[in-house]
């Protein structure tokens, strides 16, 4: 009986260990993550006279804000397409190359991720001004007949933002391609498929899940980016993130800023739930590792 009681005590003690291990993380998240985000939602759903959806009515009732939302989503889609067009071939070449440079190139891909988005956007600003490299190259190529200003335009924001997010796309797709057995491609070719067909029918098809997952990731990061649109786009490129900043820091209209933030949050959360469902629903092969 003593043994039994001792056993129960030891078991109770053992059950305490995971609770103690989780406690700091749960506490930090509860105080600095869940609570602030919950009160943000609460504030966004308040009007001067108590709870109400006034802020949301203001947003959805004004075509100006619809325009901002549309511009943001359009920017997200364009950026995603650019990163896909460049990211797919790059990730494929890096995954299939047997050169010893492939590892180094992959490392070089991660490098921009380690440099602050502020610094990278700054580099683009130098290139985008009227007498910058972009304008002069286009002039030299005869594509334009007088200098253009890419700075403070939506085009500039998209070019810069796609560069900021491209490494994430390449890394995601690289993992997916690596996990696809190259023997499958050989098998398709041995059955008579031309390389391009084998690539389309086998590799891209198997990578479909990873491609969608990478696209959702880039899209949600693009529509929530702040530093690049604010620096490269200025006032001209008004997107959700810059509008939130303007409402809160500059106009001090925190309830409305909170409502804008909540709308952005819902879009991103919806996308990430889709992303999660996608990874859950498909085999491991297609999920990025």
């Amino acid at each position: 009986m003593t043994a039994e009681r001792q056993g129960a005590g030891a078991r109770r003690q053992a059950a305490l260990v995971p609770i103690l291990l989780f406690a700091p993380c749960v506490l930090v998240y509860a105080i600095f993550f869940i609570w602030p985000q919950a009160s943000l939602l609460a504030i966004s759903a308040s009007s001067k006279s108590g709870p109400g959806l006034d802020q949301y009515a203001r947003f959805f009732g004004d075509s100006y804000y619809w325009e901002i939302l549309g511009r943001t989503l359009g920017m997200g889609i364009t950026v995603t397409v650019i990163t896909l067009v460049l990211g797919l071939p790059t990730a494929y070449v890096l995954a299939r190359s047997q050169s010893r440079w492939a590892g180094l190139l992959l490392l070089l891909t991660t490098f921009p991720l380690l440099v602050s988005a502020v610094v990278r956007s700054f580099g683009w600003m130098v290139l985008f001004f009227r007498d910058g490299l972009v304008s002069r190259t286009l002039l030299a190529l005869g594509l334009i007949d007088r200098p253009v200003q890419t700075m403070y335009t939506m085009t500039g924001v998209i070019i810069a933002l796609a560069q900021v997010l491209l490494p994430l796309m390449v890394l995601t797709l690289h993992g997916v391609f690596k996990s696809i057995d190259r023997d499958l491609e050989y098998a398709a070719m041995s059955l008579g498929a031309r390389p391009a067909v084998a690539l389309g029918l086998v590799t891209l098809r198997l990578a479909r899940g990873g491609i969608v997952a990478g696209s959702l990731l880039v899209f949600s990061l693009a529509i929530s980016a702040f530093a690049t649109p604010s620096l490269v786009g200025g006032a001209r490129a008004n997107v959700m993130a810059t509008a939130i900043y303007e409402q809160t820091v500059e106009l001090l209209d925190w309830p409305f800023g909170a409502a804008l933030a909540a709308i952005l949050l819902v879009v991103v959360l919806g996308l990430s739930l889709a992303y999660g469902a996608l990874i859950e629903g498909r085999g491991e092969l297609e999920a990025p590792r």
């Binding site: 609570w35 602030p36 943000l40 990061l221 529509i223 929530s224 925190w254 800023g257 909170a258 992303y275």
Partner: peptide, 20 residues
């Protein structure tokens, strides 16, 4: 939940935390 700040817009996080 522990991984979710990775995909949440930092700006939203910032607004919430400033108010908080």
């Amino acid at each position: 939940i522990f991984l979710s700040p990775l995909i949440l817009p930092t700006l939203v996080l910032a607004v919430g935390l400033t108010l908080f």
